[in-house]
């Protein structure tokens, strides 16, 4: 067990090293340079560009730049090229904004997908199964932004509540009750929208897992014992159908960063996804690279957690 954990951590650190090199190269090989972002800007004189390049080591060879970047990253001194703010502070603020969206979205996705998928599988071919299949494909095929606008129009017209941003502008002075309600309204719509795609896909996946397990010999054995349908489905079948989702559970962590760019843009939500998007447009390398690094770390932590969970839930896996 201890040796498994040790081995796994060493492996993950090596992986992280290669990921950092590759992502550094990709960003530097991509067309465009921070010093060329706005060539029409009259303030961007040739001397300015040169000064900018020296100051941020852009005139040095790539491997030097790589070393500088990680020296700054690990000593916490990385700063954004755009506004000279410390990168970690900026990311942390945005992270706190993204977190509620992510948590509510994830909870919605998982609590809706599982019951729907399991029920569809148990009553396959029935009216419930067919209508949930229909809605799943509908949700998959409607583009998220389109659906978002329809929902925004609907909510604003029906309930007369504003939903753009994290809170209504100027609400700060009212009672805390109103402010809490306001935050919840603002949170609900983007989380729900962020979850729809996930619900559609995940519920189909749950259904197919469950269907596969229902056809296994041990489910027939369970029936042959005289167990009730509930015991057969929810004990013998479900327990096996859930195994692959343990892996997925570990992989939802990275969704914190990349999962919400479109939704955050539509709802003017100052989260991490939008921050990454803006940083890419501005060629703000420190922010892009740090976010990249953080999401790689999140992926590796996620897979590590799911490896551990697998050990707990699947007796066949021993070290």
């Amino acid at each position: 067990m201890i040796s498994f954990i040790g081995r796994s951590i060493v492996q993950k650190i090596i992986t992280l090293f290669f990921v950092s090199i590759v992502s550094f190269l990709i960003i530097h090989l991509a067309p465009g340079e921070p010093s060329q972002v706005d060539p029409m800007n009259p303030k961007f004189t040739r001397e300015m560009v040169e000064r900018f390049r020296t100051e941020f080591h852009l005139d040095k060879p790539l491997y030097r730049q790589y070393l500088y970047f990680f020296r700054d990253l690990f000593s916490g001194k990385t700063i954004s090229w755009k506004d000279n703010q410390p990168v970690f502070k900026k990311i942390w603020e945005r992270f706190l904004n993204s977190l509620p969206l992510f948590i509510v979205g994830t909870i919605l996705t998982w609590t809706i997908s599982f019951p729907v998928g399991i029920r569809s599988a148990i009553f396959r071919g029935g009216i419930y199964d067919r209508s949930s299949t229909f809605f799943a494909y509908l949700l998959i095929s409607i583009p998220g932004f389109f659906f978002a606008y329809i929902l925004i129009i609907f909510v604003v017209n029906q309930f007369h509540v504003p939903v753009i941003g994290m809170e209504t502008f100027g609400i700060g002075d009212t009672a805390w009750m109103n402010r809490a309600m306001d935050r919840i309204w603002h949170l609900l719509l983007p989380s729900l929208l962020g979850a729809t795609g996930g619900i559609a896909v995940l519920s189909r996946y749950v259904r197919s897992q469950m269907l596969e397990v229902e056809g296994q010999d041990y489910v027939r054995t369970a029936k042959a014992k005289g167990l009730t349908p509930d015991q057969v489905h929810y004990k013998h079948a479900l327990r096996n159908a859930l195994l692959p989702f343990v892996t997925m559970f570990g992989l939802i962590l990275p969704g914190l960063i990349g999962g919400s760019v479109i939704i955050e843009s539509i709802f003017a939500w100052p989260g991490m996804g939008r921050m990454a998007y803006e940083a890419i447009l501005a060629r703000d390398y420190p922010i892009i690279l740090t976010l990249n690094f953080v999401s790689a770390v999140l992926v590796l932590i996620g897979t590590f957690i799911s490896d551990l969970l697998y050990l707990v839930v699947d007796p066949r896996i021993r070290l």
Binding site: D217, Y218, R220, A224, K225, H236, R239, N240, D314, P315
Partner: peptide, 16 residues
């Protein structure tokens, strides 16, 4: 009671 043909797959792998 019934005994099945495939002992390898007829027991549930996740229960003792």
């Amino acid at each position: 009671a019934m005994i099945f043909q495939e002992p390898l797959t007829s027991l549930n792998p996740v229960f003792t």
